[in-house]
């Protein structure tokens, strides 16, 4: 057996820690292979033994689109900024589905991963982050359908699509930040796993998934802008469909709060990390 261990001999001090801890980003990088295989596990195992396989990634938002179009677009007559309601709602559902699925998985990640981190050491911060990467595959598949819908409704792709990566990054950062917070809470207080379903529901109606922001009074905008998915979803529509201008003010506000959420979440997680194996 050849020894190719890249890490240098280093000293590890094991002692009780109290208070706030520094986040060891370098260590996270050293575990990139583990992140890679955990993501691969999530991606490859998700649709194992299903007939439809990855079609589910399309079907889930698609079915919701049909339901929402009938209920909110057809019956409730919610406006959609002149965009055909199915296309309007689907463009919002693509980032929304990513957010809700990743957040639920991320919240439960320490509970489902208990068999691993009570047996082996690795930076536990990896666990809530993994679903946020793995669900990107579903997200990408669902996103590709937007272009087919755009073709159907006669929408051309404009240069604003180049803004999409910024919005996707914001979406990932916020999801991971909230997921990290909730996972650390859920491992001690299991109520969080039950409550997160309602949280997701509330957050969906708080975000402009089924309605346009123009439908809300102007004065609400500034408050809702704190919630990053608000800017992400509206931004997605602007970038893809090019009907409205990019709402940079809302996106900027959202970016700040996503960043605060991620950093505070990571520090809270590190502070709680030492008790995970004891309380799990």
């Amino acid at each position: 057996m050849k020894s190719k261990s890249s890490s240098l001999t280093r000293e590890i001090i094991i002692k009780p820690k109290t208070g706030w801890q520094i986040i060891n980003w370098k260590e996270l990088k050293e575990y990139k292979d583990l992140i890679y295989f955990l993501v691969l596990r999530d991606v490859t195992s998700l649709y194992k033994q299903t007939v439809l396989g990855f079609s589910w990634a399309i079907l889930r938002p698609f079915i919701k689109m049909v339901i929402f179009s009938v209920v909110f677009g057809g019956l409730a007559k919610i406006p959609s900024d002149g965009i055909p309601y199915p296309l309007f709602v689907y463009a919002g559902l693509v980032p929304w589905e990513y957010f809700s699925t990743s957040l639920t998985k991320s919240t439960g990640s320490l509970i489902t991963g208990v068999g691993i981190y009570t047996k082996v050491y690795f930076p536990r911060l990896i666990l809530p982050i993994v679903p946020c990467i793995a669900i990107l595959v579903d997200f990408a598949i669902a996103l590709s359908i937007v272009f087919i819908l755009m073709l159907k409704y006669g929408f051309a792709i404009s240069f604003t699509i180049l803004y999409l990566p910024i919005l996707i990054l914001l979406m990932i950062l916020f999801t991971a930040g909230l997921g990290i917070w909730l996972s650390a809470l859920a491992i001690q207080y299991r109520d969080v796993t039950h409550g997160v379903q309602f949280l997701v529901q509330i957050l969906m109606y708080a975000a402009p998934v089924i309605y346009p922001i123009s439908w809300l009074p102007e004065s609400y905008r500034i408050y809702l802008a704190i919630y990053p998915m608000y800017g992400v979803i509206e931004g997605f529509r602007a970038a893809l469909l090019g009907q409205n201008a990019m709402p940079w003010d809302i996106i900027g506000m959202g970016a700040i709060s996503a960043f605060v959420m991620l950093i505070s979440g990571a520090y809270y997680f590190k502070r709680k990390e030492r008790i995970f194996a004891d309380v799990a």
């Binding site: 261990s5 890490s7 001999t9 280093r10 000293e11 590890i12 001090i13 094991i14 002692k15 009780p16 820690k17 981190y117 009570t118 047996k119 082996v120 050491y121 030492r274 008790i275 194996a277 004891d278």
Partner: peptide, 15 residues
């Protein structure tokens, strides 16, 4: 390094 000690210290030199 799976659980943290309540008291005392251990030093480990190596992977």
């Amino acid at each position: 390094r799976i659980v943290e000690p309540t008291d005392g210290q251990a030093s480990v030199y190596g992977r």
